[in-house]
Design a protein around this nucleic acid. Structure first.
Length: 181
DNA sequence: AGGCTCATGACTC
DNA sequence: GAGTCATGAGCCT
């Protein structure tokens, strides 16, 4: 099953994020200058021209549905970066992971703004109390950071834990949500 | 507080 | 199968 993703940028004062959409919804979100590891199947990426005024030259056609999703993504991301709850999200396409990873990502989505859970909490929440370390692995494989709030998972000793895009990002996001630790 | 060891489960090669 | 972890608990000093 091939992935054909539409790639659109999100400029913010923290840098330029990149969102990618499948036919089902937002599938990937990259931090500025992030070097996400590529695994498995290579995605076929459509890279439309960034300039809005240049729409006549913009090849591949972007469905209206995806542009609407992208509006929602931009608003949600900017809310979080500004220290507010994300608000409405676009549909998320999280079908790319294993059953275990999807269970973890579903649990992550239940962590509300400004609160945190431990890796062990997540493991218990999905009924795999001893898979704490694997939960860390699934967090690292989260394709939609920030909106699927893997940054709200701390180690049990209330320490920071890890973060694929760099611990500075994790710290920044938590600080803007008012989390102290 | 910090450091060390070890059981652990999913994933990758 | 062995090696790699974004863990956690237990046990030191």
């Amino acid at each position: 099953m091939k992935k054909n993703l539409f790639e659109l940028p999100i400029p913010t004062r923290d840098g330029r994020f990149t969102a990618r959409y499948s036919q089902k919804g937002l599938a990937e979100l990259d931090f500025p200058t992030s070097h996400r590891r590529r695994r498995g199947n290579e995605s076929q990426i459509s890279s439309p021209d960034e300039s809005v005024r240049d729409s006549s030259r913009r090849l591949p056609w972007i469905p209206n549905r995806i542009l609407n999703w992208h509006r929602a993504t931009k608003a949600a991301l900017k809310n979080i970066l500004a220290g507010r709850a994300a608000g409405n999200l676009p549909p998320l396409d999280l079908t790319g992971g294993t059953a275990f990873q999807q269970a973890v990502w579903r649990a992550l989505r239940k962590i509300s703004f400004g609160t945190t859970k431990s890796y062990g909490d997540i493991a218990r929440a999905i009924g795999r109390a001893r898979a704490v370390r694997a939960v860390g692995g699934a967090c690292g494989a989260n394709p939609i950071p920030v909106l699927v709030p893997c940054h709200r998972v701390l180690a049990a000793n209330r320490k920071l834990g890890g973060f694929s895009a760099g611990l500075d990002w994790k710290q920044t996001l938590l600080a803007r949500e008012g989390v102290k630790f």
